[in-house]
Design a protein around this nucleic acid. Structure first.
Lengths: 201, 201
DNA sequence: CGGCGTTTTGAGAGAGCTCAACATCGGTGG
DNA sequence: CCACCGATGTTGAGCTCTCTCAAAACGCCG
């Protein structure tokens, strides 16, 4: 769900871009909240540091993903945000966002609806992670991401990216796809997968 | 995050309780949306059915959890909701909820803030599932759920429940906790765990 | 006491991870 | 045009780890 689709143009116009070197902090726990962010390039990790000084990872945001939406409703950040690689982020100032929501009820509702959809998607992804078997996990993904015809799945990124999204090593994913293709269950094309026939459990 | 904390009393007063037999549908894909639900007892699963007629599970909601928040912004449900056991659900009528949000800006904001926090929590849980090792996953949980002293973790349910939340079999969790205790890293008490010393990864 | 669910521990097997080598593709520069 | 390079894609072999199945101890409650 691209930011474009749910954030008013007025707010987007007020955005500030910021470049981060790998290891540089976007914000730290306790900092006054500036707004929420969209990662344009690179990776930014949200972390907390435990008593022993170890970093505990909460979330890793990649290109196109947003972070710190909850900061809109909090005076201070609740974790650290550190660039895991050189990164480019776009900051949507809290004041501009809240002002827009105050003025335009539709905009506020679009934001809420986006969050509700995101909750739904995240729950589904967790459900997917409950599936142990690589084959079943891939089938789950294929069933949920089939296009209009119910048989064709368009792949956006690389298979490596998909492996990460599925929580598998890329080797395991390659092997599983190869198996499914050998057994005649799927057919692979450039950037897409076609489901030919369904399994017998 | 109990419903009580973010839903106005006026809306809660308009709620309708409904009993479901195991296997009974709360709603079906395409049904006109009635509102969002809270599961009071039992389990309700959200599913879709793929081309081959197989049920694909999106989410399983247990007691205290809510579902179909996104239905507030959609004219029809996008999946099926089926009771996996005898269940009791509370339905918050869409009209009452939206009316309350329309009238009371604070209520709408509380709802949005709750969703933003939930997104945060779900992302963290997914991050946890990315950890393969049972030991590291348990450590991650302990680090994130430590109380004010940073060393004591209160356990709400049984260890079996915790195992399910962590995505481990209960045997694996028992063994891991036993190992951690043997090695002196943690100490277990009735319904709580105390972290004694940390380990270097 | 007897029954039920949780907690524990054991042994074994399977599945995915790790490490490693190699193929393939796309872009770059000589 | 071709050699080179890096990232993606692919396959192989071994191993660790968790899951599965099994059995028993423990705790709670009627």
């Amino acid at each position: 769900m691209p930011v474009k689709d749910w954030l008013p143009a007025a707010v987007r116009a007020a955005a500030i871009d910021r470049k981060l070197k790998s290891g540089e902090a976007l914000f730290r726990l306790g900092d006054k909240t500036a707004g929420f962010c969209e990662v344009l390039a690179g990776r930014v990790r949200l972390t907390r540091v435990d008593r022993a000084g170890h970093e505990v990872i909460l979330y890793v945001a990649g290109p196109g993903e947003t972070l710190a939406e909850a900061s809109l409703f909090s005076p201070a950040y609740h974790c650290d945000a550190i660039a895991s690689s050189d990164a480019l982020v776009r900051i949507y100032p809290k004041s501009a966002v809240l002002a827009a929501f105050e003025k335009d009820r539709k905009a506020a509702q679009a934001f809420t609806a986006m969050l509700a959809r995101q909750v739904m998607n995240l729950r589904t992804r967790i459900e997917q992670r409950n599936i142990r078997s690589a084959r079943e996990r891939v089938r789950h993904f294929l069933a949920l991401n089939a296009g209009a015809d119910g048989r064709t799945i368009e792949l956006d990124g690389t298979l490596k990216d998909l492996a990460a999204e599925l929580g598998l090593t890329h080797e395991a994913l390659y092997r599983t796809l190869a198996e499914l293709e050998r057994s005649g269950e799927i057919k692979r094309g450039r950037g897409k997968i076609t489901v030919l026939r369904k399994r017998k459990i």
